[in-house]
Amino acid sequence: MKRYHIVNLQELHEKKVRDILDDKQMWNLPMVEKDADIETVLSILTSRDHVWVVEKRGGKKLCGIITESDILRLISPTRLPKYVFGKKYSISLQYGTARRASDIMHKQLITCSPDETIGNVLMRMVNARVRRCPVVENDEIMGEITVHYILQILLGKR
């Protein structure tokens, strides 16, 4: 069995986010514009576990995220909570109220900047219970820190 070289964790924590981002990752980022229809979003999520929502097609201005767990809620039978406020619980695939990416995305994001240390970002991800964190500079997405990506670096695959 092939053994991977595990980099020093302390060293990784002290590295800047910018140091581990590569162009390949940016090309491969799952992105969709906020006006994209729900079918487009769902088809991207058949092969990815999340998709970043940007303002315009081809642009990088980040405005939200849609994750697998959002879709799980959309495809499962709709169940309203005891106390209903706002429109949040009315967004449903079954009842036709989820039509565009902007209907289902989370607008408030936990982000990081390219100049932060990996250790800080990982700590924030643990505290906020998120598994992916966009790298943002001037409101534009530059890349993402995900558990998969960090594992690839940790095992020397990148």
Partner: peptide, 29 residues
């Protein structure tokens, strides 16, 4: 207004996405 019961009814009627459903949700907010 408490819109929960209306949302349930509109769901049953498959009318949540209609203009009426949308206006009810907005006005309730």
């Amino acid at each position: 207004t408490s819109v929960g019961i209306t949302v349930r009814t509109l769901m049953e009627m498959h009318a949540l996405h209609s203009k009426v459903g949308e206006l009810i949700l907005t006005v309730a907010v």
